[in-house]
């Protein structure tokens, strides 16, 4: 293999991992980016989604079909979570950042331990026909266990983008982020719109979980390693920009892939945060956000 081939391989795997990060970060782009709810339990919900797929796979269901089946229960779970959140905070008139962050921090611990108690703390994996295969283009090999989850990213993001852009309920969600009072004057209940958005965000967790469990086995605490990365992506994308999430996630994937191939794999967990800290200091509105 020439140097160029290695570089190309590194870039391709960066793009693939980036697309997967995008689908994991997507729910947070909605809750945090659009609704301004700092849902740090999202990565834990993603792992929970992964466990749902693992259990369905045990019954012989393909992971992708399991993901489709999981969307409805996770949507309902998200609506339930939002109702609890709103009853605790927004009815009191003000949702203090400290308290809502702590609530979701506690929630993510409860989810993790819940998974440990139900399924044990060992690694869980799925099986599907495309996991062992790989596609070859000259010197570049794309394993199926990366390609399939990487395709979930652009597809989910594309569908969501169409939903936000062209449907009435999608427009309502964008409107609630913009001006809640104007929305209620227009005759819509902001709480109901937000509940729906939170449900949607939680539903994406099961797709993110599918992506993660296809790459490799997961354990109940896997979400912790994603917290930094997903926040970095959402903030860098510029709060609430859905296509920005995909672009930034791919950029981050490439950066991590370059660092781990040319420097040392042990440095790559720090990459997302180093980029995030630099971005917060230099351009707090994000790469794709409007300057405030």
């Amino acid at each position: 293999m020439t140097t160029l081939d290695i570089l190309l391989n590194v870039l391709v795997s960066g793009v693939l991992f980036g697309s997967i990060y995008a689908v994991v970060a997507l729910g947070l782009a909605i809750t945090f980016g659009i609704l301004h709810i700092p849902n740090i339990a999202h990565p834990a919900l993603v792992i929970m989604g992964g466990y749902f797929v693992v259990q369905a796979n045990r019954l012989g269901i393909d992971p992708l079909i399991a993901a489709a089946l999981g969307i409805i229960p996770f949507y309902l779970l998200g609506m339930l979570l939002y109702t609890f959140y709103a009853n605790s905070f927004e009815r009191r008139g003000r949702a203090e950042v400290l308290q809502s962050l702590t609530l979701f921090f506690g929630l993510s611990l409860v989810i993790e331990i819940f998974l440990v108690l139900l399924f044990g703390s060992e690694l869980q994996s799925v099986s599907a026909p495309y996991i062992g295969t790989s596609l070859k283009f000259g010197q570049i090999a794309i394993p199926g266990r990366l390609l399939v989850p990487a395709l979930l990213g652009p597809v989910t993001i594309g569908l969501l983008w169409l939903y936000f852009k062209y449907t009435n309920s999608g427009t309502a969600i964008r409107a609630v982020a913009h001006d809640e009072r104007a929305l209620s004057i227009a005759g819509l209940d902001p709480a109901a719109v937000k509940r729906r958005a939170f449900g949607l965000a939680t539903a994406t967790a099961v797709i993110g979980g599918t992506a993660l469990v296809l790459i490799g086995p997961i354990d109940p605490f896997g979400g912790r390693f994603q917290i930094g990365r997903v926040f970095a992506i959402v903030v860098l994308a510029g709060m609430g920009s859905i296509p920005g999430t995909l672009v930034v996630a791919i950029m981050l994937g490439i950066a991590e892939s370059l660092v781990s191939s040319y420097l040392n794999p042990a440095w790559s967990p720090g990459v997302a945060f180093a980029i995030l800290l630099a971005a917060l200091a230099l351009r707090p509105q994000g790469l794709f956000g409007a300057a405030r």
Binding site: T102, F105, G106, L109
Partner: peptide, 11 residues
């Protein structure tokens, strides 16, 4: 689990 639940309850 206990810490998590106590935390949620207090918040």
């Amino acid at each position: 689990l206990f810490v998590g639940i106590v935390l949620i309850a207090f918040v």
